[in-house]
Design a protein around this nucleic acid. Structure first.
Lengths: 380, 380
DNA sequence: CGGTTTGTCTTCGATTTCGAAGGAAGATGG
DNA sequence: CCATCTTCCTTCGAAATCGAAGACAAACCG
């Protein structure tokens, strides 16, 4: 299940491979421009990477006015990454090649309430199955990564006081997965993975806030093109106090947290009090699309509250874009009321070129983000 | 007053010089460790820098168990930086050597309400005077920088819609100063400079929020050890909506901005309504120290409001420390009520190792910050 | 269609950087 | 006080990197 010889790419070679893998460059000339190395050095290194079997030349790219570049790609046989995005009741699982491109992605039902051991063992078994059924023979697994719907301490790879994951507190996820695989293991908060994944779809935007609005409210922050972790829990906005008429206690012990009003779980709760049953946050979106006024009003209020919180952060961080993802993101009134609140209340300087939009990266964005981070760990 | 030949330090040499100048290293061995270069390469480069007259060897450092290192310093004759921190009624002006150490610092009265031309020409004249009276003969000026008590667009060096600087809107400060000096010119928001300056006093803290509580409320943000500018106005918290009973209109046209309740100007206004006259934010601190209950109550309320805003940002950014500076920072009740609000309401994960403290960098911190940023511009 | 322009990639000598080895200078410890 | 250790710095051959020059390939354009 492992024990393959470690990928050996040191220094400059690793950097070049990474640039190709992440899609930042796909020709020698581009590599030279981006890496700052001389064209001749790049050619030498690329030669070696091709000899090692990590890179392949594949046709030619589009001309920029002169000779067409020879397109470079990470070899499909160089290795695979197994990645997962764990949700409360479903997980997306996939295999990526070393360029981060998905080979297979599947969504499977699971239940994190069964506890970490059961869930992670199930995940590992699913990875093994995917490797057997979809992995080309002889192509080694190079890394394993998963997103977790709760706070993760990046240093230790442990889950730290999650709200909706009974039995997971302080569980060493990375260590447990590492016991199955003698490989680099990545464990990261799901919103952070989404942020990293989305960042690829927002070229030129170095500062990004990616909101994940599902059962809970998560947020990943990209500063200067890199994921900002702070001391580990950066990006948390769910326990911010909001301005409301009524007063509701949040599970964290404080009154009037954003999560208690604007999360998918809160919306479902409010609907059920009105006698409208829902099973998943997606059902709320369906109600909105069906024109159920109670649902629309609740979603619109959620958007306003989220927007008011974002107001503070937009003034403070001056991001290039706010990206809204998660299962609630397809509800039109949510986005538009977030937009309204932010544009109305923020400084003109901060909103002048600010874009507020839904996810561009598609349903696999978080998996791609996991691939992206995992690649850094894999390439020496 | 200029036209000196440009400092010529390319690539690796500039990096080494910068490391010595910023105090990150003071021996060849240390340079090798920090820069990642081979010890032999470091020796070569340092040799050249000494030959050029930019570095000097000066005695020996303390042993770490073996031979004592030969201490390196930036030559005092390598050049000077002229820096200023402009306030509403006072400016601090100083000359720094290329290591960022102050040669002279003076505080002089001025009035930014006289408009940009008058103020900047006065500043240039003051710089010239300082050079004449305190600059060692023959030592060239290498750069000029100033802090501005309002938003600055870093790309163009213009002031953008400042609240308390009549006549400055859109004025090209960097360009105007650049006409006097054919040198690198730095123009930056004052809170940002304070943040950069303070960062030197907080080793190990890569993520820092530095609050400047004076007439206005400014905030500089250090992320990953570097100043975060966003699109230019990052760090603004003064126009965040706060939770209050009453309702006050802010000059920005929105109700209940933090600035309208918690800035020095707002406190002075509130005191005058109570029949207590003050001329400067510092007077408010004096009243608090004299035990005037109205002043204490107002300051405490300001601290609470600021703290509540910080709550959001602390959860979001997970900084290592919050540093409070500015003329109000010496009011004990301000800090303690900020502390109370943040510690009470933030996530344990975010506050576990969070320090909330007053400035460590002393009164010249902003000038030192200007020197630090200016150095980057000066060293090619 | 053939010259011109633009961009890509390789060749090769010059330069820079590295790394191992060794000398210098002080700390440590009997 | 002398042997030994640690750290600092330099020396010198080996390796990596650079940059200029040129070959190559396509787009552009009268």
């Amino acid at each position: 299940m492992s024990g393959k010889e470690r990928l050996l790419v040191r220094g400059a070679q690793g950097d070049l491979l990474r640039l190709v893998a992440t899609g930042h460059a796909e020709s020698r000339a581009q590599l030279a421009r981006i890496s700052g190395l001389a064209a001749s050095s790049v050619s030498l290194r690329v030669e070696e990477l091709i000899d090692t079997g990590l890179l392949v030349e594949e046709g030619s790219g589009t001309s920029r006015g002169g000779r067409r570049p020879r397109r470079l790609r990470v070899s499909p046989t160089a290795g695979l990454l197994a990645v997962a995005d764990l949700g409360a009741h479903h997980a997306r699982l996939g295999l990526l090649d070393l360029s981060g491109a998905p080979l297979v992605v599947e969504e499977r039902a699971c239940d994190i309430a069964l506890g970490p051991e059961a869930t992670l063992d199930w995940m590992a078994a699913s990875f093994d199955e995917l490797m057997l059924t979809h992995g080309p023979p002889g192509v080694p697994l190079r890394g394993v990564g998963t997103g977790i719907p709760g706070p993760v301490d990046p240093a230790s790879g442990r889950v730290v006081s999650p709200s909706r994951m009974p039995g997971w507190h302080n569980f060493p996820v990375a260590e447990h997965l590492g016991a199955h695989y003698d490989l680099p293991v990545l464990v990261e908060n799901d919103a952070n993975l989404l942020a990293v994944g989305e960042a690829r779809s927002w070229p030129g935007c170095d500062n990004l806030m990616v909101l994940k609005a599902g059962s809970g409210i998560g947020c990943g922050v990209i500063v200067d093109g890199r994921l900002h972790r702070g001391r580990g829990a950066a990006g948390d906005i769910s326990h911010v106090r909001v301005r409301t008429d009524s007063s509701t206690m949040c599970s964290c012990g404080h009154p009037d947290c954003l999560e208690a009003y604007a999360s998918g779980a809160a919306l479902m709760g409010a609907l059920s009090e009105l006698g409208i049953a829902t099973r998943r946050p997606g059902d709320v979106v369906a109600l909105v699309e069906d024109g159920v006024p109670e649902a629309t009003a609740l979603v619109r209020n959620a958007g306003r509250l989220i927007g008011e919180v974002l107001t503070v952060l937009v003034n403070f961080l001056n991001p290039d874009a706010i990206v809204v993802g998660g299962s609630l993101s397809t509800a039109e009134p949510l986005i538009s009321s977030i937009r309204a609140a932010v544009y109305e209340r923020c400084l003109p300087l901060a909103t002048r070129d600010l874009e507020i939009a839904v996810t561009r990266g598609g349903p696999d964005a978080a998996l791609l983000g996991a691939g992206s981070l995992l690649l850094d760990a894999v390439l020496s």
